[in-house]
């Protein structure tokens, strides 16, 4: 009986690993390719931008390290540098998002 049970219960885990990797890597490859484009906006430059923008904002508003996200992506009309800042508001239970779009 226990043999039968284990026979039915046991599912190989490697297909799960394979599928997870396929999805993850296609996503990661795209984001890394997008960040290293013809303008030389490398991943390190984006990180630096993120750090420096955060410093400037921090001088005026109390904001947390992980509340800023910078993305660089290509669209048909041109490439977009998108800066997302999550700002704390007075009640502290909600947050708003301001998008600053710089189109090239």
């Amino acid at each position: 009986m226990s043999f039968l049970l284990s026979f039915f219960k046991k599912r190989p885990s490697s297909p799960v690993a394979y599928n997870r990797l396929k999805i993850l890597l296609s996503h990661e490859r795209a984001s890394i390719e997008n960040s290293a484009d013809h303008l030389g906006l490398s991943a390190t430059l984006l990180e630096q931008l993120q750090r420096e923008i955060l410093e400037v904002v921090k001088r005026h508003i109390a904001i947390e390290q992980d509340k800023i996200h910078i993305k660089h992506k290509h669209e048909a009309q041109g490439s977009i540098l998108q800066v997302d800042l999550e700002l704390p508001i007075a009640t502290d239970s909600h947050s708003t998002t301001n998008n600053h779009r710089l189109s090239e």
Partner: peptide, 9 residues
Amino acid sequence: RGDMLTTDD
């Protein structure tokens, strides 16, 4: 056993 990725994977 199916618990490690194969070389082909």
